[in-house]
Design a binder for these strands. Structure first.
Length: 128
DNA sequence: CGCGTGACTTGTA
DNA sequence: TTACAAGCCACGC
């Protein structure tokens, strides 16, 4: 059973000009704590998909080097820049400004399928 | 069903 | 700031 569909759904919800972290997507997809699964899903998705996978970056605000596709991170950065996202001199994105802040309300899916240690960290400084 | 791997995360050095 | 270690869980063999 693959949680990919849920992940794809979340990624698809990421609005343009915004980026979400693997952990965030994982949480929204209902697999909180398994950021790896997100990357795994995206990898399985391949670049042929129409999903904005390029809007998914790691918690450090950096573009993770993909597996099997050297240079892919560069393509991702280019796509993000095209979306209007600015990169830092070190090639990092300011999650504080471009980080996607989903509006709880309706579209959210707090499906805690286990709720491991609540070490969320607190990366949701609403600012829109 | 067991083992290894992985587009990750967080804490510590 | 970078580097290393431990943890979590699904997928492929």
């Amino acid at each position: 059973m693959s949680s990919y569909p849920a992940i794809y759904a979340v990624v698809r919800r990421i609005p343009p000009g915004r980026v979400a972290t693997y952990g965030q997507v994982a949480a929204l997809a209902g697999v909180s704590g398994q950021a790896r699964l997100v990357g795994y899903a995206l990898n399985a998705l391949a670049d042929t998909s129409s999903l904005p996978w390029h809007r998914v970056i790691n918690a450090q605000g950096r573009v993770s080097p993909r597996a099997g596709e050297p240079g892919g991170s560069v393509l991702q950065r280019i796509r993000l820049e095209r979306e209007g996202i600015e990169f830092d001199a070190r090639g990092r994105v300011s999650l504080e400004r471009f980080g996607w802040r989903p509006r709880g309300g309706a579209g959210q899916r707090p499906r805690a399928h286990g709720a491991r240690r609540g070490r969320v960290g607190g990366s949701s400084p609403d600012g829109t």
